[in-house]
Nucleic acid binder design. Structure first.
Length: 930
DNA sequence: GACATCACG
DNA sequence: GACGTACGTGATGTCC
C-alpha cells in the first residue's frame, strides 16, 4: 500500500469502552491457576475476535487501531480541576486487567495506541481528522456521544453493541444539531458523567433550540440580551465564563502530538505464534479453540483443565461432527448401550408443532458426548407421493414408533440415567403423551437461567452462539415460512439428521459448560430447588388445563360486538366523520387536530399519545374520549378474551392448556403464554365476568388460594421495618397503618382517599420509588409527591438503607439476590444516563418480586406430595395465587393442606420475621373462587 | 416487525 | 440540577 489516502478505510476502536462493556456484561471469571481476574480480558478478546471475523467483506477496513486512555491527568484537568471528579473509582477486579487488554490487542496484531496526558477521544479525533483530510473513510467504533462531533465528511460511528451506524442524521437525532454544532450544545447542556458544568437549567433540548435560533454558541452568547425568557437570559449572561470553559472541555483536540502516522495502522493478519500463546497464558480454553479453528491452526494445550463431566478430552468442532441416522433396533440398542455406560444422554424431540398438547412425535435425537449424536426418524412422511385420498405413507428406512419407544422407555425412566435437555418441559410433555415419564432430568435452559438470569435470554440459539461460538443450523430453510410452511414430518430425513442431531449435540456441550459453573457461582441450590423440580410440576399443570365454557364466551362476544357497534356510531357522530377507532394515530388526529383540543403530546414516533391517562383527563371535558375509553375496554375484552380464548380450547379435552415459561422473566416469576392466563380481567366488574367462563367439572369446585400482601411482607423482612412487621403481626390493614403513620391520622378516622395515597406509596417503594413516578400515579404535583417520599423514609428509615445497600451491592457485583440466593444480574447498573436509573429501580424491585416468586415456586414444588391421594388438581399459577380443581367433598381438606404448604413455603431455608398468610376462596367458576 | 395500548400481579 | 421514570409480564391491532 502506498500510503493512506483515497479508497482507504480506517477503523478506530474506543478501547476503554470495549473494556468496560466486557467487564460489566460478563460474570466475574478468574484464571484457574492463580485466581487472577480475567473476565474482562476474555470479553475483550471475544469482541476483538468477533470484530476481526466480521470484517472480512469487501467493506473491510484497510487500517485499524484500538485507542486507549492513558494517565488520569489531562489538559482538561488543568482547565478545570473538577473535570471527571465525580467519576467512581475503577472496580478492584478490573484494574489488573487493563494492561492485559493492551497485550491482547497486540496479540491480535491490531495497532494499539495511547498518549500520556490525552484521552482516547482526542487521539481518535486527531486520527479521524488526518484520515479525512487524506480523503479516506473513517469508522469510529464507539457509542460515546462525545465523539459525535467528529461525524461527517466520510466519518461515521458504529455502535458495535447494537450494530447501528451513526451518521450525520443520527447525530442530529441525538443532539438536534449537526456534528459541527455538537460542542456548542454540549457546552450549554453540560455533562453530569464527565462533570462538565454547562449552563444550569439547560438541557440538550433547550440548548439545541437556542443554537438553532442563533446559529452558534458565540453569536448566542454575544446576543444573549435578545433571549425572551428572563431566567434563561440571565443564566447565559451570568454563566458566560462557565459555558465557554465547558466548550473547551468538550471540544476534542485534533492536534495531539502523536508519534506515529496513519500508515502505521495498516491492517495485519494475526500471527498465531503470538496470539495462541497469549490465549494459553490467559487460560481461555474454549476461546483459544475457537480462534484456532478460525485461523486453521492447532489449539494450544492448556494444562490443569478442570475435569469436564464428559470423558471427551477434545471435543470436535460442529462442522467436523458426523451424525448418525438410526433406522433399526440393532442400531438403537448400540446407542442405548453407550448411554448406559456413561449414565447420561442429551435428548431432543422433533414434532409436528410447537403446541405440546397437539403436536405429534416425528423423531428423537440423542447425544452421548460432544460430536457423537444421532437422529432417530420415526414418522417422517414419504415425499410427494400422496394418493387421491390424501393418505400418505411413511418414508422408508424408519423403525416403528412403538418399537423405538419400547426400547427407549426403560432408559428414559431409569433413575440411574440423567436425561439432559434444552427446555425439557416441552420434551417431557411430548413423551408423557406416549406413556413415557422422563426422569431424572437436567435442563440447560434452566442451568443458564440460574447462572445468567438478567444477562441474556436462554434459548438454544443464544446460548450456543454465546458459549459455544456456534450458530445452530436454522430451522427456517427446512420448514419454509408463511402459508407454504411444512411440518417437520415432511422434512426429508437426510435434511433432518444434521439439524436434529446437532440440537442434541449442542445441548450436551452446553451442559458440560454450565454444570461445573453452578457451584462456582453458588447457585446449585437455586437450580436444584427452584428451577429443576418445577419442570414436572408445571408439565402436569399444563396437561391438566382448565375447563372453559365456550357458550358463555360466545354469548359475551356477541353482546360486546353490539355494544362496540353502538359506541362506534356514537363516536363517529361526535367526531363528525367515520374513522378507525382502534387506530391511536387517527384518534389523535381527530382529537387534537380536527377538534382542536389543547395539550396533545406527541410520542417519539410523532404520533399523539392517546393512552388511558390522557383520555381520562380529556373525558372530564369531552364526550368523545369518554366513549373511546368505553369502546377500548369492550374491544379489549372481546378480542383478547372472549374471542381469542375460544380458539385455545383444546378440542380433545375441552380445556385450555397454557404454557408457562420458567426462564422468561428475569426476577424468577413465571410467565404464561398461548394463551396468557395470568392476565384474565378482574379489576372491573364487566371484565371480571370473563372469569365466569372458567369452570369446574360437575361435582367439582374451583379453589383459589392467594398470598396476602406477599411483596410488602417480604419488604418488611428484608429491609427490617419494625413498624411494618408489627402491623402484619397484628393483622392490621397495612395501607391504613402506613397512612396513619405518614399523615398523622388516627386509624379510626382514616378516609379512603388518604389510604389510597398510602397504598400508592407502598407500591412505589417496591418499584424503586421516584418523585416523578408517584406524582404521575397520584396525579399530584411533583413536589408534594417528593414530600410524601421524604416523610416515608423518615418514618420507615430501614427503607432508605435497603435501597442504598441494594444499589451498592448491584454496582459491586453486577447482580442482586433474593433471600433464597437467586441471582438477578443488572448489567446496566453501571451504565451512564437514564439506563442506569432503570437498572437501579429494577435492582430495588428484583429481590422483593424475586423472593415472592421463589416462595410460590417452593410451594408449587411441594404441592403434589401435599395433596396426594386427594381428588384435586393444581391448574394455574398467577404470581401470588394458585388455582385448583377439587371434588366438592374434598375442598376443605385441600384448602387446609395447600394453605399449610403455601404459608410455610419459605421454611426451612429462610425464616421470615413476618408470617405469610393465605386467603382462600371456592366456587363453581373462577369469578366466585377468587 | 415496531409501536401503542391495555390486561394482570 | 437535568436526564426520563414507577417493577415484572403477554396479546392484540394498526401501520409501514
Amino acid at each position: 500500500m502506498s500510503g493512506f489516502g483515497k479508497g482507504c478505510h480506517l477503523h478506530l476502536i474506543d478501547g476503554s469502552a470495549f473494556i468496560f462493556r466486557a467487564f460489566h456484561a460478563l460474570p466475574p471469571l478468574t484464571r484457574k491457576s492463580d485466581g487472577l481476574p480475567v473476565g474482562a480480558v476474555q470479553g475483550f478478546c471475544n469482541m476483538l475476535h468477533k470484530y476481526v471475523a466480521d470484517n472480512a467483506g469487501p467493506d473491510a477496513p484497510t487500517h485499524a487501531a484500538v485507542i486507549f486512555d492513558k494517565g488520569s491527568h489531562t489538559f482538561r484537568n488543568d482547565l478545570y480541576d473538577e473535570y471527571k471528579a465525580n467519576r467512581e473509582a475503577m472496580p478492584e477486579d478490573l484494574r489488573p486487567q487493563i494492561p492485559l487488554t493492551r497485550k491482547a490487542t497486540e496479540a491480535f496484531n491490531i495497532a494499539c495506541k495511547e498518549l500520556e496526558g490525552y484521552e482516547a477521544d482526542d487521539i481518535i479525533a486527531t486520527l479521524a481528522c488526518q484520515a479525512r483530510d487524506a480523503g479516506g473513510r473513517v469508522t469510529i467504533i464507539s457509542s460515546d456521544k462525545d465523539l459525535m462531533q467528529l461525524v461527517g465528511d466520510g466519518v461515521e460511528m458504529l455502535d458495535a453493541m447494537k450494530n447501528r451506524r451513526i451518521d450525520r442524521e443520527g447525530v442530529i437525532e441525538k443532539f438536534g444539531v449537526g456534528p459541527e454544532r455538537v460542542v456548542d450544545v454540549q457546552a450549554l447542556a453540560g455533562d453530569s458523567v464527565d462533570n462538565v458544568p454547562g449552563a444550569p437549567g439547560i438541557g440538550i433540548k433547550t440548548a439545541a433550540l437556542l443554537i438553532n435560533e442563533f446559529g452558534d454558541l458565540e453569536s448566542l452568547l454575544d446576543r444573549a440580551e435578545e433571549i425572551k425568557q428572563p431566567k434563561r437570559r440571565q443564566t447565559l449572561i451570568d454563566m458566560r465564563d462557565q459555558i465557554e470553559l465547558s466548550k473547551r472541555l468538550v471540544q476534542l483536540d485534533c492536534d495531539t502530538p502523536i508519534d506515529f502516522g496513519l500508515d502505521d495502522l495498516e491492517v495485519r493478519d494475526p500471527d498465531p505464534e503470538v496470539l495462541m500463546p497469549f490465549l494459553a497464558e490467559m487460560e481461555f480454553r474454549s476461546l483459544s479453540k475457537r480462534i484456532a479453528e478460525h485461523l486453521g491452526v492447532e489449539a494450544p494445550i492448556i494444562a490443569d483443565a478442570p475435569p469436564p463431566p464428559s470423558d471427551a478430552p477434545d471435543a470436535p468442532s460442529f462442522e467436523a461432527a458426523d451424525y448418525a441416522c438410526v433406522r433399526d433396533a440393532e442400531a438403537l440398542e448400540a446407542w442405548i448401550a453407550q448411554i448406559r455406560e456413561r449414565g447420561w444422554v442429551a435428548v431432543d424431540t422433533e414434532t409436528t408443532g410447537l403446541n405440546e398438547m397437539v403436536a405429534d412425535l416425528v423423531g428423537i435425537s440423542l447425544c452421548v458426548e460432544a460430536g457423537t449424536a444421532c437422529y432417530i426418524p420415526l414418522t417422517h412422511k414419504a415425499g410427494a407421493t400422496d394418493d387421491l385420498f390424501g393418505e400418505e405413507g411413511l418414508a422408508e428406512g424408519q423403525m416403528p414408533l412403538e418399537e423405538a419407544l419400547a426400547l427407549l422407555k426403560p432408559v428414559l425412566e431409569d433413575p440411574a440415567v440423567l436425561k439432559i435437555g434444552q427446555n425439557m418441559k416441552y420434551d417431557a410433555k411430548i413423551f408423557a403423551r406416549y406413556g413415557v415419564d422422563v426422569a431424572p432430568i437436567d435442563d440447560t435452559m434452566l442451568l443458564s437461567y440460574a447462572l445468567h438470569g438478567g444477562l441474556h435470554g436462554h434459548g438454544m440459539d443464544t446460548l450456543s452462539e454465546r458459549y459455544l461460538a456456534h450458530s445452530p443450523i436454522p430451522i427456517k430453510p427446512l420448514l419454509g415460512s408463511g402459508k407454504s410452511a411444512i411440518t417437520f414430518d415432511r422434512v426429508p430425513i437426510d435434511d433432518a439428521v444434521p439439524y436434529a442431531a446437532e440440537d442434541a449435540d449442542i445441548t450436551l456441550r452446553l451442559w458440560q459448560t454450565f454444570k461445573p459453573l453452578l457451584h462456582q457461582s453458588r447457585v446449585t441450590t437455586v437450580y436444584e430447588t427452584l428451577e429443576r423440580p418445577l419442570v414436572p410440576v408445571l408439565a402436569q399443570m399444563e396437561r391438566n388445563g382448565i375447563k372453559v365454557d365456550r357458550d358463555t364466551l360466545s354469548r359475551m362476544s356477541n353482546a360486546f360486538a353490539q355494544k362496540m357497534a353502538g359506541l362506534e356510531a356514537e363516536i363517529h357522530e361526535l367526531a363528525g366523520e367515520t374513522f378507525n377507532v382502534g387506530s391511536p394515530k387517527q384518534l389523535g388526529e381527530i382529537l387534537f387536530d380536527k377538534m382542536g383540543i389543547e395539550g396533545g403530546k406527541r410520542g417519539k414516533t410523532g404520533a399523539y399519545a392517546t393512552g388511558v391517562d390522557v383520555l381520562e383527563d380529556l373525558a372530564t371535558e369531552h364526550d368523545l374520549p369518554a366513549r373511546v375509553l368505553d369502546w377500548r375496554q369492550v374491544s379489549k375484552l372481546k378480542s383478547t378474551y372472549t374471542d381469542a380464548l375460544q380458539t385455545h380450547i383444546n378440542p380433545e379435552t375441552g380445556r385450555v392448556h397454557t404454557s408457562y415459561s420458567i426462564a422468561g422473566a428475569s426476577t424468577g416469576r413465571l410467565a404464561s403464554t398461548d394463551p396468557n392466563l395470568q392476565n384474565i380481567p378482574v379489576r372491573t366488574e364487566e371484565g371480571r365476568r370473563i372469569r365466569e367462563a372458567f369452570v369446574a367439572e360437575p361435582g367439582n369446585l374451583l379453589v383459589s388460594l392467594d398470598y396476602s400482601q406477599i411483596e410488602l411482607r417480604i419488604l418488611a423482612h428484608i429491609a427490617g421495618i419494625p413498624a411494618l412487621k408489627a402491623a402484619f403481626a397484628e393483622g392490621q390493614d397495612i395501607h391504613a397503618m402506613t397512612a396513619s403513620e405518614m399523615f398523622d391520622v388516627p386509624m379510626e378516622e382514616m378516609t379512603p382517599d388518604v389510604r389510597r395515597k398510602a397504598k400508592a406509596i407502598n407500591f412505589g417503594v417496591i418499584y424503586g420509588i421516584s418523585g416523578f413516578g408517584l406524582a404521575r400515579n397520584l396525579r399530584i404535583p411533583r413536589a408534594e409527591a417528593q414530600g410524601f417520599i421524604d416523610r416515608y423514609f423518615e418514618r420507615f428509615p430501614g427503607i432508605r438503607a435497603y435501597m442504598d445497600e441494594t444499589k451498592a451491592f448491584a454496582k459491586e457485583h453486577g447482580y442482586v439476590q433474593t433471600l433464597f440466593g437467586r441471582r438477578i444480574h443488572t448489567p446496566e447498573i453501571n451504565a451512564k444516563g437514564p439506563r442506569a436509573s432503570f437498572a437501579y429501580r429494577a435492582a430495588i424491585n428484583a429481590p422483593i418480586q424475586g423472593t415472592a416468586a421463589d416462595v410460590i415456586r417452593r410451594a408449587m414444588v411441594r404441592m403434589p406430595a401435599a395433596i396426594e391421594g386427594l381428588p384435586a388438581k393444581m391448574l394455574l399459577q398467577v404470581h401470588d395465587e394458585l388455582l385448583f380443581e377439587v371434588a366438592e367433598d374434598a375442598v376443605e381438606d385441600v384448602i387446609a393442606r395447600a394453605r399449610e404448604v403455601m404459608e410455610g413455603a419459605a421454611d426451612p431455608a429462610v425464616h421470615l420475621d413476618v408470617k405469610l398468610t393465605v386467603d382462600a376462596g371456592q366456587g363453581a367458576n373462577w369469578a366466585e373462587a377468587h
